[in-house]
Amino acid sequence: MSVAALIVAAGRGSRAGEGIPKQYRELRGMPVLSRTLPAFLAHPGISHTVVVIHPDDRALYEDSVAVVPSPGPKLLRCARGGQTRQDSVRSGLEALAGLEPEYVLVHDAARPFAGRDLIDRAIAAAARWGAAVPGTPVTDTIKVIGDQSEVLATPDRSRLRAVQTPQAFRFSLLLDAHRRAASAGLHTFTDDGALTEWAGLPVHVFDGDTGNIKLTHASDFQEAERRLKGETMAYVTRLGTGFDVHAFGDGDHVWLGGIRVPHDRGVLAHSDGDVILHALTDAILGALADGDIGTHFPPSDPQWRGASSDQFLAHAVELVAKRGGIVDHLDTTLLCEKPRLGPHREAMRQRIAEIAGLRLDQVSLKATTTEKLGFTGRAEGIAAQAAATIRLPEVSA
């Protein structure tokens, strides 16, 4: 049977931090894409491989292919990516259509650890079912939440799977589903299994590989580097706490968690007065035993007057990375009578996760009043307390 591989490499990878797209960043001296391709090019069951790239990345792509050992005739001319991942996959499928492969495996370029066994299972699953995705058991309890962060349901995790790539399909089936979705004006599917489900076709799950990680955040790159070195890094866990408070003053908004929140007061502060981001910054610095926010950004320095506090938190996270560490979790409690946190909680969590390069489930945000007691109870100011859990490489005495 004829099997083609489609490698999706057109994304921007913004969650991995600033710089070139993550699929072209180096891992142990080679671009990520250069480490992803060989498993597919060397597999005897795959006849052709096409990579879908962003139009601006041609030089980066060519540099990556140049260091792939013996790419050979299996590697076809790259295809031009689209505005969304779905558009990019369809572009790759159209590029393969003239070859009429029987099956196709769709794989993310940012998963450089897909091994031969996983590819074997993907090909077998495509032949057996026509549409199949690799999945691994979910070990955490999952909650379905509502608009106010209330728990709506707790699914049985024995029936849940975390889905990976390569996803495997009968070629004609997947191409038809993509064409139908495009004709319907749908362009936002981020998973080919989900698009195939939308098309009304059954999708099956085969065994994935827990080592088949996707490089999404900066910490994923650090872990991948250690894995390629064959090292098992010993870490020590550290906990830091932070607290910040600002008095209310004239104004019509406050900054909280990186979000501008309308309010009938402003805050008196040298920077933008974001107590949540300030407390989180101090918590990380505390875990590092590296002073406090005033040490790194002294209020006597005029350059920080009115400064956006996202740069303070980003700086603290960068210090962890420079020490070879990983930020595991950030937790904050806001103390105030007003404004209400609820309507803005998820936007704040998302913004904090973006600044720190974390997943959303690594950011917790809560609020409480002080039962009308103290300066917060009298609505004279606002405060936040935070905790940060990090891991640092263990240093021998």
Rank of each mutant, 00 (worst) to 15 (best):
Y235I: 02
G72Q: 03
V51E: 05
R180M: 03
L330G: 02
G357V: 05
D192S: 10
T190K: 12
G294L: 15
H315L: 11
R170Y: 13
A124R: 12
I20T: 12
G92I: 00
S34F: 08
V65S: 12
G257A: 03
P112F: 13
R128D: 07
G29K: 05
H296N: 12
Y61E: 15
H278N: 10
T237Q: 01
L288Q: 02
Q350T: 07
P69D: 10
A388S: 00
W198E: 03
A131C: 06
R159P: 04
R378K: 10
Q86P: 07
D120M: 06
D57T: 15
Q23G: 12
L33G: 14
A153V: 05
P339A: 06
A110E: 15
G251I: 04
S172A: 13
G286E: 11
P302A: 15
A79E: 02
H217M: 05
L27A: 06
L174P: 00
E231D: 11
R238D: 00
S88D: 02
F169R: 04
G82L: 01
M30N: 13
L186Y: 03
A110K: 06
L76E: 07
T49E: 08
A184P: 04
A383F: 12
T241S: 08
A4I: 03
G45L: 07
I293F: 10
D191A: 06
D209M: 12
Q362L: 01
A397W: 09
W255G: 08
A122G: 09
V68R: 12
E100A: 12
G273N: 03
P71D: 08
V8N: 07
L313S: 09
I213K: 04
D328R: 00
R28Y: 13
S396Q: 05
H204L: 00
A9H: 09
H270I: 15
L285T: 13
A132G: 14
A181Q: 00
D57S: 15
G240Q: 03
R345D: 03
Y103G: 15
G273C: 03
M1F: 05
L99S: 04
T389Y: 00
P393G: 01
A110V: 08
A177H: 01
I53Y: 14
P71S: 06
E150V: 11
A314W: 06
L215F: 05
M233N: 00
P134D: 14
H315N: 15
R85Q: 12
A125G: 13
D274N: 09
L330M: 00
P262A: 02
R305M: 12
P166T: 14
Q23V: 15
S300Q: 09
E18T: 14
K143E: 11
A184H: 04
L335C: 11
I142S: 01
A132V: 08
D117T: 14
L341R: 04
R340Y: 14
G92R: 01
M233F: 02
L288M: 02
R378G: 10
V320N: 06
G291P: 10
D191K: 03
R180G: 01
Q167P: 12
W198C: 03
S149P: 14
L118A: 09
A397M: 15
G92Q: 00
R345Q: 04
H107F: 10
Q86C: 08
D117G: 11
